[in-house]
Design a protein around this nucleic acid. Structure first.
Lengths: 339, 339
DNA sequence: TTGTAGGCGTTATCAA
DNA sequence: TTGATAACGCCTACAA
């Protein structure tokens, strides 16, 4: 394995000083160098297969041109679109995105965060959505690294925040169900320590009360199919709860609910209607196609990235919160309330 | 924004030389330092909130402790499990995984690759599955960076390779359909420049011929729902093709086929059976639940990571190819051939 | 067990 | 417009 080509090698071949090579190869400074020299340097670089060393550069400039993105679970299909939105904006500015998966696990989150800090990321985008990771956020801020929060229900600190309009989403979902004749609705919410859980649950309570329908909220212990399945299990065990419609904390939970209901011989939507949240990819291909509150996931990612870039450039963090509009995608999982 | 804490700051507070701090803070060398000193150093580091600078360290050691993973499309649900497998193995060894999305776009792939090279990744895992990115692979090898290929149909260069058993998968799928009485089967393959496309298509040709059933292969122009939809479109336009069963190049294509068939009023599986490939997450939640060849995605990722680590440690690349066993998941999208 | 010194590959500042 | 030089933060012989 031959030693890698350095700027010195290029300088030697081009017969200039390495400082000149550096200037020539950086877009920002390349106009400071003679056109003739520039050509010679570039040729030499190409000829040698020179690849700049980002670590050396970062050490010198104290900017890694790297952004850390922390998400709880790559397997949840809402994250790929968000990441795509983030990358779309950031790559165009020359940043590389470091994705860290935490599996919704506290210590994994902490060590992932630590590892990103060591790599001197220029900014963080946190999509953990947890209410209890304030420490991580504060630590980032203390380290002078800008942070943007994604998919939060509501702002806690003074950090920039971007997400969908949860309240409006709940209103749309409940209105849809009421219109279909449902008079008893259960909200199978996510875990209480997720910030979206709280805002959706509060909105549900308020909206359902205002609509004058019987309602109740139960909590899944994760935002997964399995947790949804289990939540339905619990609900079925209580024989005092007999809703004709369910509003799930997200689409995965909705899927889990439907699976369990089906196992019980209950058809969706003939016997029970189910509304999901997020309108994740493939929502329309499920069985039945999922009625869901559509979140503009890609845009959420893109806006978060823009907010972060602003924070990096200006060096200051305003606690701006950006709430993007949502819509209700009506599909096969909701229907008229049974007679 | 205060200047970040360095090893020198810690040294000053702990009243030792920075070399001692370095030794104390590195697991490999911490036993070279006096227990008392060690404690003092650690306390000082904690007190100051010291976070080692990975760039400086990497520059010095010429190892970034970073692995580049190039995938064509994060939105394709087969990749998250693969990534998870990769991360599981690599994180345990202290590596950070850099994921690069190419959107199946040539120039994006090249620039992503370039960017990873600049960051001096210690190894590459390429899951692009394309037949025509040999140049990238060769360039990595030329740079002395180990490479492992994932999800390839067949080896091209002498690079380590891990994937599922495509031939066996096709055999299982065809046998299943034949057993159900199907005598006319179409393979809606992926794009020809994907390596898995080739090996699956060849296996299909061979297996179907051996089984003595009428068969034909058509090609979708991508491994997406849309491309599957379009492929079905083309097939329906030819009124000389009337299969009772379809084997798709992957699950997304299968989904696209089903969508288009449904639009035509053809029910699955009553009128046409469809088999997918990969058994991607959620395959069982689709409408109808997808019969699919199960690929051990997570294991594939994990094995690729192990092979890569081996390459990094030994400094040499054997062209070992690892083929993991597959199974057929029979679900609702396949049924008896119509009379 | 600890300190000294040099260098990893760049870029920024200053001088020519 | 180009060259010389120092410094970014860390690790590692080597010496003490």
């Amino acid at each position: 394995m031959p030693r890698r080509v350095t700027i010195d090698d290029v300088a030697r071949l081009a017969e200039v000083h390495k400082a000149t090579v550096s200037r020539a190869l950086n877009a920002r400074t390349s106009d400071q160098v003679n056109a003739e020299t520039l050509k010679r340097v570039k040729r030499a670089a190409r000829q040698l297969g020179y690849v700049p060393n980002a670590m050396a550069r970062g050490l010198r400039t104290s900017r890694s041109m790297t952004i850390g993105v922390i998400i709880p679970d790559l397997m949840n299909p809402i994250f790929p679109p968000i990441i795509r939105g983030i990358e779309h904006v950031l790559q165009a500015q020359g940043y590389t995105v470091l994705i860290a998966n935490t599996d919704s696990h506290d210590d994994v989150e902490i060590s992932a965060f630590e590892s990103l800090l060591q790599r001197r990321v220029d900014g963080f985008i946190l999509a953990t959505g947890r209410l209890d990771d304030q420490p991580v956020v504060d630590q980032a801020a203390a380290a002078g690294v800008p942070v943007v929060l994604v998919n939060r229900g509501s702002g806690m600190g003074g950090y920039p925040l971007v997400g969908g309009d949860n309240v409006r989403g709940v209103e749309l979902a409940v209105a849809h169900l009421v219109e279909l004749g449902h008079r008893s609705i259960v909200h199978a919410a996510g875990p209480p320590n997720f910030s979206t859980t709280r805002s959706r649950a509060e909105a549900f309570e308020a909206t359902a009360t205002a609509a004058g329908v019987a309602h109740q909220t139960i909590y899944a212990n994760a935002l997964t199919i399995e947790a949804g399945f289990q939540a339905a299990d619990t609900m079925l065990a209580h024989n005092d709860i007999h809703p004709t419609a369910l509003m799930a904390g997200n689409d995965l939970v909705a899927l889990g609910l439907i699976r369990r209901l089906r196992a019980e011989g209950l058809r969706c939507p003939e016997d029970v209607s189910v509304v999901g949240f997020n309108d994740m990819p493939f929502a329309e291909d499920f069985w039945p196609p999922l009625t869901s509150v559509h979140m503009p996931l890609r845009d959420i990612g893109a806006e978060a990235a823009r907010l972060l870039l602003r924070g990096i450039d200006t060096g200051e963090q305003d606690g701006a919160t950006l709430t993007l509009p949502v819509t209700l995608m009506v599909r096969g999982s909701t229907g008229p309330a049974p007679a």
